[in-house]
Design a protein around this nucleic acid. Structure first.
Lengths: 131, 131
DNA sequence: ATGCTTACTTACATTTTTGTTAGTTCCTTA
DNA sequence: TAAGGAACTAACAAAAATGTAAGTAAGCAT
C-alpha cells in the first residue's frame, strides 16, 4: 500500500488475474482491511474524516488515510474539502460504490448461514500460532 | 498464511471486524490471491490437484496447496483422496461455495461497468513504483 | 534396486500490508 | 505569543502473504 514493485512475481500474478477476470478486479478493489468499514459508515451519507475514524474505531489516521486515498483513486469515494478553519473534509460514496450494496447484503446473509453450518465442526487451526 | 501471531494488533483488528460483521467474515474467507481462481475452475465439477494447478497457471504447488487447505478448513472445498497409485486427489466445491456464485456474477458485471466508467479518467498512480 | 508420477512439504527469501510514533500545516481564538 | 483542532504526512517497524527451490512418500513398472 505504500510502495509496489511492478515486476515482482507477486504483482505480475495479481495483474494477470485482474486482467482476465472482472470479479478479481472488483475483489482487489474492495478487499482490504478498512474498506468495508468505510462503505458501511458512508452508506447513509457523507462523513468527515474524524467522524469516520471515530465511528470505525481501532483505525489509525494513517491507515484510514491510505484506504481512503485508494478508494478515491479507484472511484469509490469522493473527497470534498470545505475551506473552513479548522479544515473540514467530507467523504461520500460514488455511484459505483453504492451499487456494491447488494453484494454486502448477500455476503452478510451468506456469512451468517455459513457460520452456522461451520459451528461445532470447526477443526484445529490451520497455521502455527505464536503466543 | 504460514504463521499468525494471535495477539498482534493486526490480528486483533481483523477479529474484531469479523466478529461484528458477517460480510467481513465472508470477505476474509474468499479474498486471497488464488481462491477466486479455484472457485472458478471447480465451478463445473471436481478436479484433481494437478489439473487445477495447470488450468490456473502461474500458481506454484505450494501456493495452491495453502489456499486449498484454508478453503477446506473453512468449509469451501472438499478434498477426496482416491487410494490409487500414483495418488489421485480431487477437489470439489461445497454447498456454501456454490452459493457464492451470485456474488461472482454480480461482481463480474459491476467490475466491467466500473472499469468502463474509470476509463480515461484514471489519475496518476497512488504509490511509489520501484522499477 | 531404480526410476516414475502425483501430491504434496520444508526451509528460506521477498514483497506487501498493517501498525507506531511523532510531526506538520492552516488559520483562529485566548 | 501560544495553544488548539482537523486532517493529514514521514520515517520506521512488525506482521502477513506470496514466491523459490529442493526434497519426500507411496507403490507400481522396469
Amino acid at each position: 500500500m505504500a510502495s509496489i514493485k511492478k515486476n515482482s512475481t507477486n504483482n505480475i500474478n495479481k495483474e494477470i488475474i485482474i486482467a482476465r477476470c472482472s470479479e478479481a478486479y472488483a475483489m482487489d478493489m474492495i478487499g482490504t482491511r478498512w474498506k468495508l468499514s468505510v462503505f458501511y459508515q458512508l452508506k447513509h451519507g457523507p462523513m468527515r474524516f474524524s467522524a469516520l475514524r471515530d465511528s470505525i474505531g481501532n483505525v489509525t489516521d494513517r491507515m484510514l488515510t491510505l484506504h481512503l486515498r485508494e478508494m478515491e483513486r479507484d472511484g469509490l469515494v469522493i473527497r470534498t474539502v470545505y475551506p473552513e478553519v479548522p479544515a473540514r473534509v467530507e467523504y461520500s460514496l460514488t455511484e459505483s460504490a453504492v451499487e456494491l450494496q447488494p453484494v454486502w447484503e448477500y455476503l452478510r446473509a451468506w456469512g451468517k448461514r455459513h457460520m452456522d453450518r461451520q459451528q461445532g465442526l470447526t477443526p484445529a487451526p490451520l497455521h502455527d500460532t505464536l503466543d
